[in-house]
Nucleic acid binder design. Structure first.
Lengths: 108, 108
DNA sequence: CCTGGTACTCGGTATCACCAAGTACCACTA
DNA sequence: TAGTGGTACTTGGTGATACCGAGTACCAGG
């Protein structure tokens, strides 16, 4: 399945929020997680730009820790604003999917 | 519900395809249809750019007809390529929603 | 050493929806 | 007959987002 990229616009950031929200983790691992979830062609560069944005928008708390097998990792955790943003994301997701499913059912 | 715009990226075009696929129709009516479906802040300009793109990509057949209460309408119908594109869109949609729902369930 | 896996950064590009303003056609009304 | 409002399409520019590619750096094992 390819060419998903355009459809992920706006949702990928929410996915990253969800992942961070369930466990404090770092960019490289998030990328792997997304890949194994089925978003195979999401690459590191994309995830890092999202993480930078989250940080810039004050939704996460960042902690740098040594890795042992590579450069130090930047661990991300949600703060209150981040949790709120995550809830908003899921609300929007529900809304959109319900409308589109209705459209698909031929709802008129 | 606002701020849906970014999340609609890539899906709005599919919605328009679906609407056209179910009935030959025109831009203004498509906008109204999307609005009543719950995509309240989708405006005409947006729909027209999508229609132009569909036409440019050879997914639709266009017929101009007089309106009676305004300027002539451009009616859009799917051609074979358009129907194929629509099927692809739904396949992608299924794929993405299933993955994201899995993520939401805490699937790990 | 040197290859390969881990881990982050940065500059540029393409796509897509939005916005704003404009054109134009018609019916109704004052 | 001038004005208003609804219908209908066009166009040029903007902003957000994900992608791509190249680069830096650290470490372990052969």
């Amino acid at each position: 399945m390819d060419g998903l990229t355009e459809m992920l616009k706006g949702t990928l950031e929410g996915c990253v929020l969800e992942i961070i929200g369930s466990e404090e983790t770092y960019g490289y691992a998030i990328t792997r997680r997304l890949n194994e979830l089925g978003f195979a062609d999401v690459v590191e560069g994309t995830v890092y730009t999202i993480l930078l944005r989250l940080e810039k928008n004050g939704l996460v708390q960042v902690t740098k820790r040594p890795s042992g097998l590579g450069p130090p990792r930047k661990f991300y955790a949600l703060n209150d604003a981040g949790r709120e943003e995550l809830a908003t994301f899921w609300a929007k997701w529900e809304y959109i999917t319900s409308r589109i499913d209705k459209l698909k059912e031929g709802g008129r």
